[in-house]
């Protein structure tokens, strides 16, 4: 599996990682190595095998529609990098 710099840049953007050029080179090589290793999965016969996405066969786990107390917003807002009133503040979102 060959991984291009563009692939790494595309993935880094999806993951919102602002990588430096050096990091891109570095990860390009490492990602290639890891993917070459995991390629061995192609040998496994998965014909008619259902994917397993949970470790347990649990089903229908619900919560009753009964309110519980919310947090005191001050307990979390005090950690926020930027707030205004009780809002979290972020750089302007352009739509």
């Amino acid at each position: 599996m060959s991984i291009s710099r563009d692939d790494v840049t595309y993935i880094a953007n999806l993951a919102r990682l602002g990588l430096t050029e050096e990091e891109i080179t570095h990860f390009q090589g490492q990602l290639e190595g890891i993917l070459a290793y995991v390629d061995k999965l192609k040998e496994a016969d998965v014909h008619d095998v259902e994917p397993m996405t949970h470790a347990l066969d649990l089903k229908n786990v619900y919560r009753k529609d009964v309110p519980v107390p919310s947090l005191d917003p001050r307990s979390v807002l005090k950690m926020a990098p930027a707030v205004q009133d009780q809002f979290y503040k972020v750089p302007k979102v352009i739509e």
Partner: peptide, 21 residues
């Protein structure tokens, strides 16, 4: 991007890239 670049170490970035890929 800057926050995550400065906030995560190399191993975390490596795994986030692999997982995203």
């Amino acid at each position: 991007k800057q926050t995550r670049d400065k906030g995560f170490g190399a191993e975390a970035k490596r795994r986030l890239i692999l997982g995203t890929y």
